[in-house]
């Protein structure tokens, strides 16, 4: 695998504490890194600009889905063979990208979704309340998209260029994770899941508000259904 043809998209909003280390870890593996700053008001953009990455910046905060779409449009324009979605808060591990893209490289799949619940050692790391909310999300996603997966709203995923070109994210907020599934299903792409480890650091946990996010996601999805 030519790692430079793998474009890792890192959406970033006010992650000055972690974004530098995350981008450096990706660069150390030889991937092409596309950092999309989503209108950060802290020093995230300054940190990003000091590193040898492809850097894009939204003039205003639009949400993670919009940042991913911007990154994918850019990566496709630059000739990416594969794109990987990767969080900027340090939850994902760059060394697992190889496992994530393997099914695409072997021709087995068009899209690989990272899952926290395929291995016991990974699922044990998920805090109890978060696991409950995620399980509820799995049911809601299944009902809305017809795709019954082991994990949803996991931001670690890989897409072939063909798959990235076939989908278009319009949902700016967190509901984009469900939108991606609906788009993948609509485009009849082959989807597989791959076990990944999500590191719940103190920092990541301090930022995450699973209940509030869950309510926001459900409201966004209802609005999306109603106002397409």
């Amino acid at each position: 695998m030519n790692r430079a043809s793998v474009f890792v998209i890192v959406p970033c909003y006010n992650e000055e504490r972690t974004v530098g280390a995350v981008l450096e870890s990706l660069l150390s593996f030889g991937y092409t890194v596309v950092a999309v700053d989503d209108g950060s008001t802290d020093n995230s953009w300054k940190v990003t600009c000091t590193l040898p990455v492809h850097a894009l910046r939204h003039p205003i905060n639009l949400g993670q889905g919009a940042a991913l779409q911007t990154g994918m449009s850019y990566a496709l324009r630059e000739g990416a063979a594969l794109v990987v979605h990767f969080d900027a808060d340090g939850q994902h591990a760059a060394e697992q990208i190889g496992d994530l893209v393997a099914p695409i490289l072997s021709g087995e799949a068009d899209v690989v979704l990272g899952s926290r619940f395929l291995r016991k050692s990974d699922s044990e790391l998920v805090p109890f309340v978060r696991a409950l909310v995620l399980k509820a999300g799995i049911v809601i996603n299944g009902l809305l998209t017809g795709m019954w997966l082991h994990d949803t709203h996991n931001g670690f995923r890989a897409l072939s260029a063909r798959a990235a070109r076939a989908i278009r994210l319009r949902e700016s907020g967190f509901a984009h994770a469900t939108e991606i599934l609906a788009e993948l299903r609509g485009a009849r792409l082959r989807v597989v899941e791959c076990p990944v480890t999500v590191r719940y650091t103190e920092y990541a946990l301090s930022k995450g508000q699973p209940m509030r996010n869950a309510v926001n996601i459900v409201v966004d999805l209802c609005l999306r259904k109603l106002f397409r």
Partner: peptide
């Protein structure tokens, strides 16, 4: 909101910088 997002995304793409253009 959707139109504003498209505008902001187009701006981000138009002003994207590659490694070394810091």
């Amino acid at each position: 909101e959707a139109r504003l997002a498209e505008l902001a995304q187009a701006l981000a793409l138009a002003t994207a910088s590659k490694p070394g253009e810091g």
